[in-house]
Structure formats: C-alpha cells, structure tokens
C-alpha cells in the first residue's frame, strides 16, 4: 500500500474533483489487483494513467463506471458515492462516457444509429433531436460522410471515432478512455488522438489509460503512474516524463524507449 508521492503542485484547473478514489481495493479471486488507490480527477483536467501491464490501470477505469465492482474503498462522482449496481449506478453511468479498446460499436447498427441509440433509449430524448445531435457529433469527429455505414465497413480508427461520438452523445461530465488506440493500426492512431486532443482543448474532463507517451506528455494536465495495483508516482507531465522522482517510473519509461 504505497502512498502516492505528490511532489509538485497540481495545476489549478479548477479545484472540484469530478471523480475521486479513496483506498480503492479490487480483487479477482486470490489476486489483489488494486491495493488501495487514492487519487482525484479534477474538472477540466486530462489525467493519463500509465504503467506496465497488470498494474491495474484498466481495472481502475472499469471500476469507475461500475463495470467491475470494488471490494473496498470508495469512488465518488461529484461527491456522490458510486453504487455497486442497480438503478443508481445506471443513472451515474449516464454522466460518464466510456471508450473501449475494442471500440465495441454495435455491429447491427449504422454509425449514426450507434450514436443515436444512447440518447433515445436511455435519456428518453426524441428521435429527431437525437439524430440532430448525432449528426453534429459525427461531423465533429470528422465522419459525416460515414453516418450510414455499418461498423464492418469502417476502419479501426473510424470505428473508434464513432465510439467517441457515441459516448459524447450522452453529454457526460467525464470521459473514460481504456487504451483507446492500442487496437489500432499505426496509421489510424493519429486521427483518434487528434479527436481526443480537441476534446481536451474544449475543456472535457478526461481519464485516459494509454501507452501513447507522446500524447500523454503533450495533452495531459496530470499523469498517474501505477504499478502492481498501486500508484507509485503522480504529477504534471513535465515531472513524470522529464524528471521522474521514483526509480520504478524511470525504469518503466526507459523500457518504452522514452528518451524524454
């Protein structure tokens, strides 16, 4: 149970924590994957979660919207406790958007329909309004001309951008990204990161699990480094990437070939 080493002042991007974790514990059978994680994601911030495989970063993300149930500690959204299941959890999920590594678009629906289904089914918005919203969002991610295509007709990068639009259609307070570019061909990674960068510039609160260090260095406001289920270091990108304080962080970054 290592406490985070917060060695630099957090950039004041607004002091309201949108998501806060205290002492979050998660076990899978006999293995403890999260050993007591405490951190905050503040309003308007882009927080990147990095670390070796198996460090628990994806698990932490999935606990955030209740796809995994935590075994100890608390997760708060806007100061409200995240319920473990039921209607309360569903209501909170509407306020968080999630983008999956495997996109998980609904293959039996067109791109437009994928973006429309959330607002219509969950938020009860009229279909016309939802279609208007979806059209605008597809334009925003640069895919207006693909609205009528099915996921099987889209490249990975295009599918992921539709997935981002689908999550944004719910008008969430925070966007969760689970290794959004790990399953993409190198050529299409850029187009997805560009969309994410724009979102960040527009002030969206984002929690991103990623291996894209250049992206994290340039776009994030705060970086959290995890290893073996605990946070070993967190700070602004300049600290983590240029002057890491913890040896394990240095090791991890050098393994990735990060020249700094």
């Amino acid at each position: 149970m290592t406490t985070a080493s917060e060695t630099s002042q957090r950039k004041a991007q607004g002091t309201t924590p949108v998501v806060s974790y205290s002492g979050v514990i998660k076990r899978f059978g006999a293995v403890t994957v999260l050993t007591g994680v405490s951190m905050e994601v503040r309003k308007g911030e882009v927080v990147c979660l990095i670390g070796p495989s198996g460090s628990g970063k994806s698990t932490l993300l999935r606990c955030t919207n209740g796809l995994e149930r935590i075994d100890g500690g608390e997760i708060l959204l806007d100061g409200q406790l995240l319920p473990s299941d039921g209607k309360g959890l569903r209501l909170m999920r509407r306020r968080m958007g999630m983008v999956f590594q495997n996109f998980e678009l609904f293959p039996h629906k067109t791109a437009l329909e994928n973006v429309v289904v959330g607002p219509v089914t969950v938020l009860g918005i009229s279909r016309d309004e939802a279609v208007e919203r979806a059209t605008a969002l597809l334009a925003k991610v640069g895919l207006s001309d693909r609205a009528g295509n099915y996921p099987s007709q889209l490249s990975g990068g295009q599918q992921q951008r539709v997935a981002i639009a689908r999550a944004l259609a719910m008008e969430p307070e925070v966007m969760l990204f689970d290794e959004p570019t790990s399953a993409l061909d190198p050529e299409t990674v850029g187009e997805v990161l560009a969309v994410m960068k724009r979102l960040a510039e527009e002030g969206m609160t984002m929690l991103v699990v990623t291996h894209e260090m250049t992206f994290a260095r340039r776009v994030s406001d705060w970086v959290v480094v995890m290893d073996k289920g605990a946070i070993i270091e967190q700070g602004p990108p300049q600290q983590i990437y240029d002057a890491p304080q913890v040896a394990r962080t240095k090791e991890f970054l050098s393994h990735l070939g990060w020249a700094g």
Partner: peptide, 22 residues
C-alpha cells in the same frame, strides 16, 4: 462478446435494454 453488453451498460442501459437492443 461480453464487450457488447459492457458498451451498452456504459451508456447507462439496463440489463433488459442491453439484451433487447444490443
């Protein structure tokens, strides 16, 4: 794939909605 249900839940759908629609 389980991920399909998860994507539906992430949007806030109930289990019945996720089953019926996705």
């Amino acid at each position: 794939r389980k991920g399909q249900s998860e994507a539906a839940y992430a949007l806030g759908m109930s289990p019945w909605q996720a089953f019926r629609i996705v």
